[in-house]
Simulated scan of single mutants.
Amino acid sequence: MRTVATDAEPTPYLVDLSARELRRRLPEALAIYVEAMGYPQGTEYHRAPMWSEHVLRPGWCAVGAVLPTPDSPLVAVAYGYRGARHQWWHQQVRDGLRRSGADDEYVDSVLSDYFELTELHVSPRAQGHGLGRALTRRLLRDRPERTVLLSTPEVENENNRAWRLYRSLGFGDVLRDFTFAGDRRPFAVLGHALPFEMDEPPNR
């Protein structure tokens, strides 16, 4: 699938990234992450070991978008893996759901069989042209899990590209205004049933 990045640049194309390839491109991928999330320079050095460890988790897969030029620069990246009880994100969301008043049966149903869409980032110079949607479709095709879950920072009136993307794809609320340990910003946890049918109407 091809999408237009800008009038001045060639059209990026999607590629499946092996663990080896992501490790090789880790500086590029983390630079996109830091820029897209608005984090301070240097954040990438703290995140690199985590991203490197994630590739070892069961069910891990990744997709990137590159420009068809001699050096094939990466302009977008997405990855995820099968969620499990021992993982930090799983434990954080479980605690958040319980604190929100959810009973154990509901919590177990949410977290029993899911794919965690861990990272989805598009370089600001390539945003607004469908790459996020294309990456999501590619990453979630043929996943065996029952649901996909992700977290995204809360913004007023859900008014940014990430929220518009997730709502247009039909992601619904699982947990709102949740603060992860080590981050002061409130986050939302969103979910969607699998298999991921792109033609179904959005939730809202």
Rank of each mutant, 00 (worst) to 15 (best):
E21G: 02
L22F: 06
L22N: 08
R23T: 03
R23H: 14
R25V: 02
L26E: 03
E28H: 13
A29K: 05
A29F: 02
L30W: 04
A31H: 10
V34S: 06
G38Q: 06
G38L: 07
G42E: 08
T43Q: 10
Y45H: 15
H46C: 01
H46P: 00
R47W: 09
M50C: 01
M50T: 10
W51F: 15
S52C: 10
S52G: 13
E53C: 10
E53R: 15
L56C: 12
R57M: 07
R57T: 08
P58H: 09
C61P: 00
G64V: 07
L67I: 04
P73Y: 08
A76E: 09
A76W: 08
V77P: 00
Y79C: 10
G80N: 05
G80R: 07
Y81D: 03
R82K: 14
W89H: 02
Q92K: 03
V93Y: 07
V93N: 11
D95A: 15
D95R: 12
V107E: 11
S109G: 02
V110C: 12
V110L: 09
S112M: 03
Y114A: 03
F115K: 04
L117V: 12
E119D: 13
L120G: 03
H121D: 08
V122I: 12
V122P: 01
R125Y: 03
H129C: 14
G130C: 05
G132P: 01
R133T: 11
T136A: 09
